[in-house]
């Protein structure tokens, strides 16, 4: 009786395994992989996840299959006698080495894919590349092979994200900035300097790659390159207080021309506000009772 049933069970498990491997990728978008589609680093993380997941599925089916098989096949029955086995050195060395080999394979895959995830790529040629300017690789900061990117400062504060954009000069006080929504040009590699001014936050736009903590006193780095216009949503991923759930972030990718216009508009409005403030300071200096 044993042989036929054993065959049947083996076949069932094989079928289940094949079915999982075939059906899974189809239903994968939402259920089975991290978000991706905004930037190549997010796509590569998703691929790396998928590879690991498939190895995990094989291990899962192997272990759960053996467990279920053993529980059914070796349940206590009349006349059944338990084999008094204490161990089997060869078998034990075998599965120890087996586990190690699987891990070595996973490590090799990870190291092969790491540079594509961690290191920024070059901007797309043309208008997008024109918006990138040389950035220095300081500390752990990685820069594209051509050394040029659009470097934006991300500053976390309870419970807002503030972005400061480069304006080409050395004075950081008059740079264009925005809150909550970051506007970037498509095709340009964007590098981020992530900092915090109060508690620990974590910068995360799932479709644009992994999260990086904003730790006060430290600078953390991330990058992305968006190739199609669109809006990407995210939020703070490290508990930062009562408003943590509402500390949202958005990245809007627009064409390089629109980006230039938007920056010009921001700069103009900042300049206008500065001038208005200067004027009102002057008024107040002449007459302390004047309406500011």
């Amino acid at each position: 009786m044993g042989r036929n049933r054993r065959h049947l069970i083996t076949l069932t498990f094989l079928a289940a395994m094949v079915a999982t491997l075939v059906v899974a990728p189809a239903a994968m978008a939402d259920l089975f992989t991290p978000e991706s589609g905004g930037s190549s680093n997010a796509d590569r993380i998703s691929t790396l996840y998928l590879l690991t997941f498939l190895v995990g599925v094989v291990v899962f089916i192997g272990v759960e299959g053996t467990l279920i098989y053993a529980l059914i096949k070796f349940r206590a029955r009349k006349g059944a006698v338990a084999a008094q086995i204490h161990g089997n050195t060869r078998l034990e060395i075998g599965w120890t080495v087996g586990a190690a080999v699987v891990l070595v394979v996973l490590a090799v895959i990870t190291f092969a894919m790491l540079p594509g995830i961690r290191d920024p790529s070059n901007s797309a040629p043309g208008a997008a590349a024109a918006l990138a300017s040389p950035v220095a690789a300081v500390g752990e900061k990685r820069v594209p092979p051509d050394g040029k990117a659009l470097n934006i400062e991300v500053n976390g504060q309870q419970y807002l994200w503030r972005y400061t954009y480069p304006d080409g000069d050395d004075n950081n006080l008059n740079n264009p900035f925005s809150y909550e929504e970051m506007v970037v040009p498509v095709g340009t590699t964007v590098t981020l300097d992530i900092r915090s001014q109060d508690v620990v936050h974590s910068w995360w736009i799932p479709e644009l790659g992994g999260k990086m903590d904003a730790v006060p006193g430290y600078t953390n780095y991330a990058w992305f390159r968006i190739d199609k216009p669109g809006v990407f949503h995210g939020q703070c991923a490290e508990l930062c207080g009562n408003g943590h759930a509402n500390m949202i972030a958005k990245v809007r990718a627009v064409s390089p021309e629109e980006y230039r216009e938007w920056i010009a508009e921001k700069s103009a409005s900042i300049q206008a506000a500065d001038e208005a403030a200067a004027a009102s300071r002057e008024r107040l200096a002449q007459d302390p009772n004047a309406t500011p």
Partner: peptide, 10 residues
Amino acid sequence: IFPVDWQLHD
């Protein structure tokens, strides 16, 4: 796998 954890952490 730390690059994957960048997505999954927290």
